[in-house]
Design a protein around this nucleic acid. Structure first.
Lengths: 328, 328
DNA sequence: CTGAAAGCGCTAACAT
DNA sequence: ATGTTAGCGCTTTCAG
């Protein structure tokens, strides 16, 4: 930086200002600085900058599992909003390991990021709340009643309700639900399902599941062997719906002819023409954007109380749902 | 840090050594330091550390497109190898935008990461080679003849050969290839296909494509309407194979009964039971691990010449390939 | 094994 | 509009 200053014939401070686009620099010196910098191939040292300015203009994003097709859209939303607000992103993934999650959060803290967004984090609330003392944290897709961290979620209860209403309106009475896991919307979706079924005077039929393809397979097999009639399946998420779909196929049951099928999340797999799964869209981009917004409110707006946002999801009807056979 | 030193009754330098696990610290003072640090909730400032030590023990990983199911496995491999070597990771995604890619690389340079891994980068070679003057760079899944950056790739030519051999050994003579894009193995796969077809005295039948589902749909429609017989399709990657699959389904053609289908990449979608696509596995974890290895050789081993690694892929036979109907 | 001192490369008042 | 002066929090000689 000294070299740049010398070459441009100005002081270091001026170089600093010019390079950051301050308006208190004359066009002439700015040009000189920029030319000198590029001639010298100068790259500012972010570590030094962050150290001196005591801020990083960076948000840390932790993705629970990079393999899960649920996450990219959320990150897209975060990225877009962060760009707009002038914040950089550092992304990390914990690869499903809770300890790694905590370690990654610690690393963010040590980097002195200005805010942390945890997407689908599975680690304990205690670890999160502890870290929240050092940096603003917002949780996406992980409900948590806390008054130190913000949360942004879709309304799983409503989503489930939309699904059941859709199936019921098609004429279904025997809708089976494949459960999902706790901490990722499973119980909320289940509750929405049960409540809506009962409101229509229908009997809930629930099979345990775990948001995985394999669990969808198991659940479908149990459901079909169970004896109770099943004309539609509401799987807890898209992945488990694919497991269900495979079993239906394997048993020669037409979809939606014999059995209708609905997933949740609207991942790209659901949109594949070959699958064309009816599902629920959480508007993940918006979830991400809201997370950034929440962070900005704390970092730049000085908010200190927790904000818990819940946004309405939307039903996406594709080709796996139709009237039950009995209504032809 | 001063506080920690005071509380532990030692000097700052000692704290620094103790916290980084140096062996020149007495167990007693180490314990005192650790206790003091945890009591005070002390978090070292990575920016200060990086600045003072002139290294970050961090590798930057740039993923071309977070949505592409191809990448996570590569990052897994990188993560594992980096962990083992004691390096931290910062991941970033360019979301398919070339300018964003260059910006992300610049950001890595400014962070002074010790090395950069570009996974499937699409940006110009010039930008990459320029950045390579500031930091060691290795390209994964992007062939590039360069003597300043390392590359790690699977052998696309061999992969295509494996596919054609498999289909020919099943009795197929009319194998159509849906092309992929340049810079991501497309031309190499095509060349392997053409060469192997010709070696068997078969006539190549190529349809343009772009590694997307939609391009697979278009290519399949053209291929089936073209007049030439088609008993098998070798799609450039899994995604385009899904497009082909949808067209085959739509036209009532059984897979593999009427037409066999093969993809490339072995993404999780290919492994879904409902799809069960025969495909080629690049061993992406290994690609990632090798990338870290290459970086370590430069950072710690002092290598300065480029290394270009090509690893053999493996055919994964699932349920979309079988003998042609004529051999029934 | 420990402590003192210098400085990593930058920003942020404060002067001018 | 531009230069001066202190640090930011840590690591790293170098002397004890």
């Amino acid at each position: 930086m000294d070299d740049v200053a010398r070459r441009a014939g100005v002081s270091r401070a001026l170089v600093s200002l010019a390079l950051r686009g301050s308006d208190k620099v004359s066009p002439a010196s700015r040009a000189a600085v920029e030319r000198a910098a590029s001639e010298l191939g100068y790259r500012p040292n972010l570590n030094a900058r962050n150290l001196a300015s005591k801020r990083t203009s960076t948000f840390g994003v932790l993705i629970n599992d990079l393999h899960n097709p649920y996450f990219p859209a959320v990150v897209d939303g975060i990225k877009r909003a962060a760009d707009e607000a002038g914040y950089r992103l550092v992304i990390n993934s914990a690869f499903l390991d809770e300890d790694a999650e905590v370690a990654a959060i610690d690393a963010f803290v040590e980097f002195r990021v200005d805010g942390v967004i945890l997407v689908g984090a599975r680690c304990g609330a205690a670890a999160i709340e502890r870290a929240a003392q050092a940096v603003p944290i917002v949780l996406v897709s992980r409900p948590l009643a806390s008054d130190v961290v913000d949360t942004i979620n879709n309304d799983d209860h409503l989503g489930a309700q939309l699904v059941v209403e859709h199936l019921v309106s098609l004429g279904h009475e025997h809708v089976c639900h494949v459960e999902g896991v706790t901490g990722a919307g499973g119980p909320e979706r289940r509750a929405g399902y049960v409540e809506t079924m009962e409101r229509h005077g229908l009997e809930p039929h629930i099979q345990p599941g775990a948001f995985t393809e394999a669990s969808g397979v198991d659940a479908a097999e149990r459901a079909l062997d169970d004896g109770r009639p099943v004309t539609a399946v509401f799987a807890g998420n898209d992945l488990s719906a694919l497991g269900v779909l495979d079993v239906l196929d394997g048993r020669g049951l037409a979809v939606p002819g014999d059995v209708s099928l609905v997933g949740y999340d609207n991942t790209f797999v659901a949109a594949l023409r070959h699958i064309a799964l009816t599902t629920v869209d959480q508007n993940r981009q918006r979830l991400g954007a809201l997370a950034v917004e929440a962070l900005l409110e704390r970092v730049e707006g000085g908010r200190t109380t927790a904000r818990h946002e819940v946004i309405p999801p939307e039903l996406v009807v594709r080709e796996t749902t139709g009237p039950p056979r009995s209504l032809g």
